[in-house]
Design a protein around this nucleic acid. Structure first.
Lengths: 138, 138
DNA sequence: CAGCATCCATGACGATACTG
DNA sequence: CAGTATCGTCATGGATGCTG
């Protein structure tokens, strides 16, 4: 019944104190899904995982990202210990981002999920079309 | 350089037509992350993966979910071909949700990610604390 | 070059009320 | 029991302008 997975059905007698959101916020799986589920984290992590890369190089490589979101997401990834920010004191300054061992670990885990998406999401799309057709004809 | 991963740096000459969001919307990895990144999908999928389960049984087991979100998420998972909805014509009707082969496949892939979260998110938390301390003292 | 600050629109989600 | 419908809120993220 392994407990602790998301906010899975724990049995707690004093449930009055625990509000749903508080419970969810503490859950490690919830925290991870919030991070990898956001719009840019996985893509950025993937690129940085290939090789260390500069800020504007990332920006050029990622189609459609704003510098606000690039900056913000990099800050979060850095804070989480998944990427490392290095400043070379040239003129002007050159900042590059690299992956940490922890980040590389996560990235390899994510690769399984990405592979699944790339090979099986067409099956999902097919299911969606079938579902929608069924709903049309009633 | 495997292309097609999220909206990774493709080289397209006619980039004027392609808007960022359109590109992103078509990406299978983006679609999957949108689904598993939402608030309830993974938890619901995990419970259904253990055994077929009734609507209100799910609701009771998931702390803090509204019936709107339970219903809505189940509909999405069903549409994606990840869970199957079965109606027994008793009085009143009994509806149960089970996992499909496709859903089971995804779930096993997700388990690796969940395991990583449960074992390594404390390292992430530690990194966050370190980062915040650094920022305080400047 | 590598950002931060601000404003604003959209969409996700929760609360509530109603139904076969 | 198993939902649908509607409304309000809040957070995510895009656009824009400014800085060392």
């Amino acid at each position: 019944m392994q407990d602790g997975t998301l906010h899975s059905p724990g049995n707690f007698e004093e449930t009055i104190i625990l509000r749903g959101d508080v419970y969810a916020a503490q859950c490690p799986t919830r925290q991870l899904l919030d991070r990898v589920g956001d719009k840019w984290s996985v893509l950025i992590l993937t690129l940085i995982g290939e090789k260390s890369i500069r800020f504007n190089e990332l920006k050029r490589n990622i189609n459609g990202i704003s510098q606000k979101m690039l900056s913000q997401t990099l800050r979060s990834l850095e804070r989480d210990g998944l990427v490392i920010r290095t400043v070379e004191q040239t003129m002007p300054v050159a900042v590059s981002y690299g992956i940490t061992p922890l980040g590389a670990e996560l990235l390899s885990t994510l690769q399984a999920l990405i592979n699944w998406a790339e090979t099986r999401m067409n099956a999902v799309s097919a299911a969606q079309i079938l579902y929608d057709q069924r709903k049309e004809t009633d």
